[in-house]
Simulated assay, not measured.
Amino acid sequence: MMKLNDFQKYDVTLLIPYEKYFELIYETKYLLEARLNSDRIFVAQKSFFGCNRRTAVSKASDWYNKALKKVLGHPHDKMFVNDPCGEVVYDQGFVCTDLRNKYLDDPTIDRLIKEAGGDLGREDTKTPAASVKRLRKRRKQEVQLTDRLIQSSGGTIYYKMTELCDSKTGRSKVRKIKLASKSLIKAKKEVVRRGLDRFENFADTKELLPLKLSTSAKAA
C-alpha cells in the first residue's frame, strides 16, 4: 500500500545477463518483462514511489534482495535508480555510502563527478559499497565554538590553552587539550573543573607587560 507522502516516482533499471535472465525464471519463477539489447543484456524497468530518493532506494534494495539477489548476486552492477528531482548533489558533507547516493545511473554519476571537481570518481571495485568513491580526502574543518573552544569535524571538542611565554622568543604557545564533553555547556564546566583556564589571566597580563614597561620608561 502506497503512503500519502510517497508521491515521487523513481525508475529502476535492471541489467540482467542473458543466461541469468532465464535462470531467474527457472529458479524463482519470477517473470520480469525485459528487452534484449545488442550486448545480449536484458534491460528491465520497474518503478518505486517514495518521499525522497533515499526511501525509493531502500524499497528497491529490499525488493531486489528478496526477489532477485539469489540468482543475480550483488546489485551494484545490475540495479540503477534515477534521480528525477536532482537530490544527489555534491557538497562538503557528501557521503558516498549514504543510501541516497547509492545505485546511481550513468547521467547522475557523470553530473556528480563534474560537480565534485576532481574529488569523486567512479567506484570500480568488484563489490563496491557505493557508486562513486573519493579521490581526494575530505578536508577536516573545525568549528570555532568560543574564543578558546573548537570542535573537530568528528565532534570532539578541544580547549586552546595558552602556555607561558618563552623567555628567549617572547612568544606564547597555544596547545589544544582534548575534552571528554560533547556539548558546549558541559565543555565549559569541564574546563573550569580541570582548571585549564587558571593561567589564562596570567598569560594575558604577560602579553601586556612589555607595553606597560615601555610606557613607564618613556615617562621617566
Rank of each mutant, 00 (worst) to 15 (best):
R198G: 01
V174S: 09
H74V: 01
R171S: 09
P128Y: 03
R198L: 06
V143P: 06
D110Y: 02
N65I: 04
D105E: 04
L31H: 12
L72H: 06
D6Q: 15
A116S: 15
F48H: 02
K140T: 11
K212G: 06
G155C: 09
G117Q: 11
Y10Q: 01
S61K: 10
R193V: 02
L120Y: 03
V192D: 10
Q8T: 09
R139Q: 10
A44W: 01
L208S: 11
A67I: 01
L14F: 15
K206M: 13
Q8N: 14
E23C: 04
N82G: 10
R148E: 13
E115C: 05
E142I: 13
R100C: 14
G155Y: 09
R136Q: 13
L14E: 03
G118F: 02
L120W: 07
Q92I: 06
D197L: 00
K102S: 03
Q141M: 15
A34W: 00
C51T: 14
Q45D: 14
K102C: 14
V88H: 07
N37M: 06
P75F: 05
F80H: 04
N5Y: 15
T162A: 13
V191P: 00
R40C: 02
T205V: 00
T13V: 14
Y159T: 07
R193A: 13
T205L: 11
L15R: 14
P210K: 04
I16P: 06
Q151S: 10
M2L: 11
R53W: 02
F199Q: 12
N82Q: 03
Q144C: 11
D204Y: 03
K9L: 11
L36G: 01
D106Y: 10
F7I: 15
K176H: 14
V12M: 11
G170H: 00
R139H: 09
L32C: 00
E142A: 07
A220V: 14
R171N: 08
E19T: 08
N82L: 05
F42L: 07
D119C: 08
P84I: 07
V12I: 12
V88M: 03
R139G: 06
D197K: 04
D106V: 11
I41F: 05
K178Q: 10
I41K: 12
F199A: 12
K212P: 00
I177L: 10
R40W: 12
D91E: 04
F48E: 12
K206P: 00
V12P: 03
V89L: 15
K140Y: 02
V71Q: 05
Q45S: 13
L99K: 02
E207N: 04
A130V: 03
S214D: 14
K182R: 13
R35V: 13
D83Y: 08
L145F: 09
G170Q: 01
K137L: 09
L208Q: 12
V191A: 00
L135F: 02
R122L: 11
V132R: 04
D119T: 10
F49N: 10
L213V: 04
K59C: 03
T169M: 08
I185M: 08
P84Y: 05
L208A: 13
A187F: 06
L149T: 12
L14K: 08
D6P: 02
Y90D: 03
L24C: 07
R40I: 01
S38G: 10
P210G: 07
C165A: 14
V88N: 10
C85P: 00
A34G: 07
E123W: 05
Y30C: 01
C96N: 05
